[in-house]
Amino acid sequence: MTDVNNKNQPSGRIVIEDELTIYTALELKEKLLTGLSTTEELELDLSRIGEIDAAGLQLLIMIKQQAAVLGKVLRFTGHSPVVLDILDLSGLAGFFGDPLLIVCKPT
């Protein structure tokens, strides 16, 4: 589900695949925390997330807060449409502070 590259490097990148939901939350929490602890600067690629729910969102919040506690840099990139949707719905885009593309939703 995840792919941790460049361990112990100043910067790392994790791609979250497919699902960021309650079904994968437990597993992903470990991966993300490990990923964060081994790098100074972590990039989370969200472009391949096809499904996200509140549990997934909660996980993103947790890791963001953890990064702040550890004084590390954490960036979310390439937000997929479902991620944008949930950020929009939750009003948390500002909290994460990552540059986002504003999508025009078909109504």
């Binding site: 939350a25 437990l26 969102l57 909660q58 919040i61 947790m62 506690v69 939750s90 009003g91 948390l92």
Partner: peptide, 17 residues
């Protein structure tokens, strides 16, 4: 809509489920 995230504990204590 404001999402309240204050209750999320620190990483170690947080249960993702």
């Amino acid at each position: 809509l404001v999402t309240i995230i204050d209750a999320i504990p620190a990483a170690e204590e947080m249960d993702p489920e």
